[in-house]
């Protein structure tokens, strides 16, 4: 099977980035907004906008726009400008691989009865 050890890192699929026109336009606009707002924030901070109530709110809003815009840029970049790559990796053992019997597929009970559950929740070492 795949556990022979020699297939790890094999590239199973490599599809070039999609780079659709709409995505390109969107990322350019978002980049322009990002740059403008970053400079606006710095300018406002240096000019002391934050010292008045309204100006402080305004500066906060600008910072929020910077971060949200950056999030959208990264999401778009990930989706449209990175190649689609699938690599063979080792499947590590999961908890669900352990001690599986047919009647234990939903896990083994932690305690029997509601009161016992309460006692074990309060004191974990209660009667192993």
């Amino acid at each position: 099977m795949s556990s022979s050890g020699s297939t790890y890192g094999d590239i199973h699929r490599y599809e070039p980035a999609r780079e659709s026109t709409a995505a390109a336009i969107a990322i350019v606009l978002l980049t322009i907004i990002e740059v403008v707002f970053v400079f606006l924030f710095t300018f406002g901070l240096i000019s002391g906008w934050g010292l008045s109530d309204t100006g402080n709110m305004y500066l906060g809003a600008v910072l929020a726009v910077i971060f949200i815009d950056l999030a959208f840029i990264l999401a778009l970049y990930r989706k449209e400008f990175l190649p689609d790559v699938v690599i063979v990796k080792k499947r590590r053992r999961k908890w669900e691989d352990l001690y599986i019997r047919e009647d234990e597929v939903d896990g083994t009970p932690f305690a029997d009865g509601a009161w016992d559950h309460v006692k074990r929740a309060i004191y974990p070492y209660y009667k192993r």
Binding site: A17, E19, A24, I27, I73, Y77, E80, F81, L82
Partner: peptide, 9 residues
């Protein structure tokens, strides 16, 4: 591929 995205970033 995706070099344009790299440029924007």
């Amino acid at each position: 591929s995706g070099e344009f995205g790299n440029l924007m970033l």
